[in-house]
Amino acid sequence: MMVELFSDPGRPMTVTAPSTRAIRWPAVRPWLGIAVRLGLAAVWLFAGATKVGDLAASGRAVNAYQVMPYDVAAVIGAALPFVELALGVLLLVGLATRLAAGVSAALLVVFITGIASAWVRGLAIDCGCFGSGGQLAAGQAPTYLPEILRDLGFLVMAGFLLIWPRTPFSVDGWLAGAAPEEGEDE
């Protein structure tokens, strides 16, 4: 769907035959890339913004996973929202996109592992992905599967940018000069 949305407006949208796929991909990829980049930026900015107002609560959400001592969890919980915001800004402006995508992917793998381990251990917690977090009230069911699937979706987005970091309207592109350098996508 995004492919349609962000395809080059100058190009006729009627191409449907599978044989034209190879021709469309180079034209479509930059626009899909920018959509993915901005999408992932929005995810991080939102995730960071919902936690940054109450750092102690963020620490408690990390602590609810019961994988590290409270003091370590508190520090990680306090640092995490700011790191998420910084990642969001990097992706938003498109600076060091590949590195930001790599860090995003690494964080997401940690999150997915954490949620899965909470699930396996039978903890009843909110993942604390966007704001809230901590133990759920009695009668509230955890939603681990949707949380994991959602994070996997984000992981795919990070993977896309890891493979194709160059997108339009990015600081990376601006630093490299106007001419697109094919060799850079190694």
Binding site: A56, V75, L80, V103
Partner: peptide, 16 residues
């Protein structure tokens, strides 16, 4: 970028 991320984390720690 790495420096930015590290500084961001340190800010969180300091504020906390």
């Amino acid at each position: 970028a790495v420096v930015l991320l590290v500084i961001a984390g340190l800010i969180g720690w300091t504020v906390y």
